[in-house]
Structure formats: C-alpha cells, structure tokens
Simulated scan of single mutants.
Amino acid sequence: MSEAIEETDITARYRLSEQVGYLLRLASQRHATIFQALISEDLTATQFSTLIRIAEHGHASQNHLGRMAAMDVATVKGVVDRLKSKGLVTSTADPKDKRRSNISLTHKGAVIVDTLVRDGLRITEETLRPLTRAEQRTFLALLAKLG
C-alpha cells in the first residue's frame, strides 16, 4: 500500500506534460511536420541547414561545416554525400591542406538558396504562429540561450 502512495506522491511532483524535454519534443515534432509540408525542395532539415550555412559562408571544410550546422562528423559526411548526389554541393581540395576538402555550392545549389530562404521564413512563421510577436521574440531569445 505504501508503494502506491509513493507513486502517487511522485506523480504529483512530476508531471510529464510540464517537463522541458517533453515540451521541446512536441514543439520539435510540430516544426518537423510544418517543415516537411512547406519545404519546396526534396531536402531534410539537416540538408537545408547545410545548404544555408554554405551560402552564408561561401565554402567551408566538412568539419567546420558540421560545427556550423550543429552536426557530428559522421552525420555531416552523409549529408554532404547526399547533397553531392543531388548536384547541390561540390568538394574541392583545400589549396593549403590537401587532406581537407572545401565544400561549396554548385550553380544548381546556389540557384535554389533564395527559394530555401523564403521557405525557411514561411516555416518559422508557421511554427511560431500560436505566439504573439513579443512572445516569439522572447521564445527565440530563450531558445538561443539554451543552445
């Protein structure tokens, strides 16, 4: 009998629906659904982020690109390989260090970046739609602090 009381006591103190991980997962699932519905190219969120980071910086080593797009080494390699197979990025040997590859956009990749930026703005707008403008600014600032 005391075990049932302890479990009830624990569940009274811990509500899953109030926990940060649970709420972040729900928000992430909502965003992923919106992303898939509104992205105009056949890209994953990590492929999208990679293309945008390359567009922002012109080119980057695969390692640096992974850090900029918040991916580990194994993940960024797979993402870059898939983007190469789609004809959106290319890799060339770094003139200063032949062991390192610089990843850059192909002409095809550069052409779709404007569309991706517009898609990204629409995706963000739709994801944040339930919030007021002031709440959106606060939410994004708080998320940036956690990241």
Rank of each mutant, 00 (worst) to 15 (best):
Y14D: 06
F139W: 15
A37T: 12
A69F: 07
I123Q: 02
A74I: 04
Q136H: 05
L105C: 06
A4L: 10
E125N: 13
D97M: 02
I103E: 02
K77D: 01
K145D: 15
M68N: 01
G58R: 13
L105I: 13
L105P: 09
D97K: 11
R100D: 09
T132R: 08
I103V: 15
L116K: 03
I52R: 01
S101M: 09
T11R: 11
L105V: 07
G78L: 01
K77I: 06
R118L: 11
V20I: 04
R118C: 01
K108E: 14
L146E: 06
R53V: 10
S17H: 11
A12G: 10
D94C: 05
A45P: 11
K86Q: 15
S101N: 12
L51M: 06
M68R: 09
H107A: 11
R30V: 03
V20H: 12
L142Q: 14
T46E: 14
H31S: 06
L88P: 05
E18Q: 14
V20L: 10
V73N: 02
T46P: 00
D97R: 09
A4R: 10
L88E: 14
R15K: 12
A27D: 06
L26P: 00
L23D: 09
H107I: 03
A45N: 06
D119R: 09
T50Q: 04
M71W: 04
T46L: 11
E126F: 00
Q19K: 13
S101D: 10
M71F: 08
K96V: 07
D94E: 11
F35S: 01
A144R: 13
G58C: 13
R133D: 15
G87S: 03
L146T: 07
D42T: 11
N63I: 04
L51I: 12
L65M: 10
T8M: 09
A4S: 09
A74S: 15
R53K: 15
A69I: 08
F48Q: 10
T11A: 01
T132N: 07
R129E: 12
E125H: 15
A45I: 12
R99Y: 04
V79S: 00
H59A: 02
L116F: 04
I112D: 07
L146R: 13
S40F: 00
S101V: 01
K84R: 08
A60Y: 00
G147E: 11
A55H: 13
G78A: 00
D9R: 15
L65A: 03
N63C: 00
G120M: 05
T115I: 12
E41T: 05
G147A: 11
L23E: 15
Q136A: 10
